[in-house]
């Protein structure tokens, strides 16, 4: 087995890496690039702590190989702040106490940011009564769409409040 050269673009910055093809995107971020904001909770796609945004879509970075992401635009929790200011979603999570231990939090926030984009694009969810229509972002819709992010501290209700706050144009 030999290593593969791959250039990863993370938060707008290109990183040339020489990687064992077995390295997941998650481990590449955490161990090779030292960007530990993205968390490893299960390494099996079952908790959502590793959620990052790739080409605008949220994915589990533990279930994809880094070598499969040459040329992709990868956004992690470290890339959400702008000019040193918290992203509105980050600020809302703090304000609504949508976190406790903090370990699922970066994944929750990346997921929530992508959720708003998915909703804006008119994507339905299993909570949508008529999938042919563009759904209204009710609390039930938010909860269903966030169910891929487990929070064992169970800050779920506060997470829903934070997301609704941002969706409604929330304050910072």
């Amino acid at each position: 087995m030999h290593n593969e050269n791959v250039a990863l673009t993370v938060n707008g910055r290109r990183h040339a890496l020489d990687l064992d093809p077995r390295v997941t995107l998650l481990d590449a971020l955490r161990e090779n690039l030292g960007m530990t904001g993205t968390k490893k909770g299960c390494d099996q796609g079952q908790c959502g702590a590793c959620t990052v945004i790739v080409n605008g879509q949220r994915i589990n970075s533990c279930l994809t190989l880094a070598v499969m992401h040459a040329g992709d635009e990868i956004t992690t929790i470290e890339g959400l702040e702008e000019d040193g200011n918290l992203h509105p979603m980050q600020a809302a999570f703090v304000r609504h106490d949508g976190l406790q231990c903090g370990y699922c939090t970066p994944g929750q926030i990346c997921s929530a940011v992508a959720l708003l984009a998915e909703h804006k694009a008119g994507w339905p969810s299993y909570a949508t009564a008529d999938v042919a229509t563009a759904p209204v972002l009710t609390d039930g819709e938010i909860a269903e769409r966030m169910s891929g992010n487990v929070c064992r501290c169970s800050a779920y209700s506060n997470i829903v409040s934070a997301i609704r706050d941002v969706a409604e144009g929330g304050r910072i």
Binding site: G48, T51, R58, I59, S111, P124, V131, G148
Partner: peptide, 19 residues
């Protein structure tokens, strides 16, 4: 084919469905 949309959306999580 709304049954297909519904079925897919009933499976896994948004993150997994994106991949």
């Amino acid at each position: 084919y709304p049954v297909l949309s519904q079925a897919i959306l009933a499976g896994a999580s948004a993150q997994l469905r994106n991949k």
